[in-house]
């Protein structure tokens, strides 16, 4: 077995074992932390499809994360206020059912990614980075200045949404849900990379001119990947909002984009389990460094700088070697 495969199995089992052990020892806080790792990893898996497979350096994925979060709030807030979601042109009530919310979040994220991607992919390179960043910030300012859903203060959803057959208020059951979604997303990402579409995407990343000569439009392939990526990150946003039972514009802030990207890189770009390793490391650093200094992000910055300058390939690249060469 390849070292990376072994490492992946260790990561998958480790992320399952830690909260189970914590549950047995009566430490619900650690279960919640593990849930956060799983959800952030899911956002990272989404970004990794654009970044790792498609070579699209998107600094605006907070937009999709926030779209997912706000979709949850828009659907669930009317229920807790005992109001219909809309009355015109037809009456529709909100919902507290997670599967419906997840589907709606993914559709909303996909539509957002379609609009942003269609414009941003007209350019490439450094333009693409700046434009995704700018569109992300546009949604942030829109959320701040739109008073219907709390404006700058955000909006609280007091009771966590439900999933058929589970008690989502129980931390370990909610963790199981997030973990299941993460594993499904990893499976999708794995199959995508090996499919004909994944190969076309790799071709579009490595040599757009040659792809075009082979009859594959790089623009369409990349846009499709960007849409899938946005939908997955939006799903993570809906789960994250449910974890916190709170949505605010800070989910849309560009720093969230930066952090999702950082955890993908910490783990290793284009590695299947890179986001999982990165999210775990990020949350560990946050709690370990945050424990002895209020200014823990200073040390995070220094660590990140060191990794970018000297340890390329991220955690998985360092541990498993660079046997998978990505151009």
């Amino acid at each position: 077995m390849r070292r990376e495969t072994v490492l992946n199995i260790v990561l998958a089992l480790g992320l399952l074992a830690v909260p189970l052990a914590a549950q047995a020892m009566g430490e619900p806080f650690i279960v919640t932390l593990a849930t956060k790792v799983a959800i952030l990893a899911l956002a990272g898996v989404g970004l990794n499809i654009a970044l790792g497979l498609g070579g699209m350096v998107s600094l605006g994925h907070a937009a999709f994360f926030g779209i997912g979060g706000y979709t949850m709030a828009v659907l669930a807030a009317p229920v807790q206020a005992y109001e219909p979601l809309m009355t015109w042109p037809f009456e529709l009530s909100g919902t507290k059912s997670m599967p419906v919310i997840w589907l709606a979040a993914m559709v909303a994220g996909a539509l957002g990614a379609l609009a942003i991607g269609a414009l941003s992919l007209r350019t490439s390179g450094v333009y693409f980075i700046m434009i995704t960043l700018a569109f992300g910030q546009m949604l942030y300012y829109f959320a701040i200045s739109w008073p219907a859903y709390g404006g700058e203060d955000g909006i609280s959803i007091y009771v966590r949404n439900g999933f058929p057959g589970l008690n989502t208020l129980d931390p370990i059951q909610f963790f199981a849900l997030a973990y299941g979604v993460l594993m499904a997303a990893l499976m999708v990402s794995w199959m995508l990379a090996r499919s004909g579409f994944g190969l076309a995407l790799a071709g579009a990343r490595q040599n757009p001119a040659r792809s075009a000569a082979l009859g594959i439009r790089p623009y369409s392939v990349k846009l499709t990947a960007f849409v899938i990526s946005g939908a997955m990150t939006a799903l993570a946003g809906a789960l994250f909002a449910d974890l916190n039972r709170f949505v605010s514009p800070s989910m849309l802030n560009w720093q969230t984009s930066g952090e999702i990207m950082v955890l993908v890189i910490l783990g290793g770009v284009a590695r299947l389990f890179g986001p999982v390793a990165g999210a775990a490391l990020f949350i560990l650093l946050e709690h370990w460094l945050g424990g002895f200094s209020e200014y823990w992000k200073l040390f995070l910055g220094l660590a990140l700088l060191g990794i970018v300058l000297f340890a390329r390939g991220g955690l998985i690249g360092t541990l498993a070697g660079r046997e998978v060469a990505h151009d």
Binding site: L51, V57, L59, G125, V126, I129, G258, M261, V262, I265, V269, Y295, W296, K297, L298, L300, G301, L302, L304, L305, V308, L309, R312
Partner: peptide, 30 residues
Amino acid sequence: VIRRLYARDHLDQVLATFALILVFSEGTRW
């Protein structure tokens, strides 16, 4: 920092300068 990044791709530049933001912002807050 920056002169080590000229030969790198844009992704590394984004990350390293994002890290610099964290360092400068938290340093200033300190």
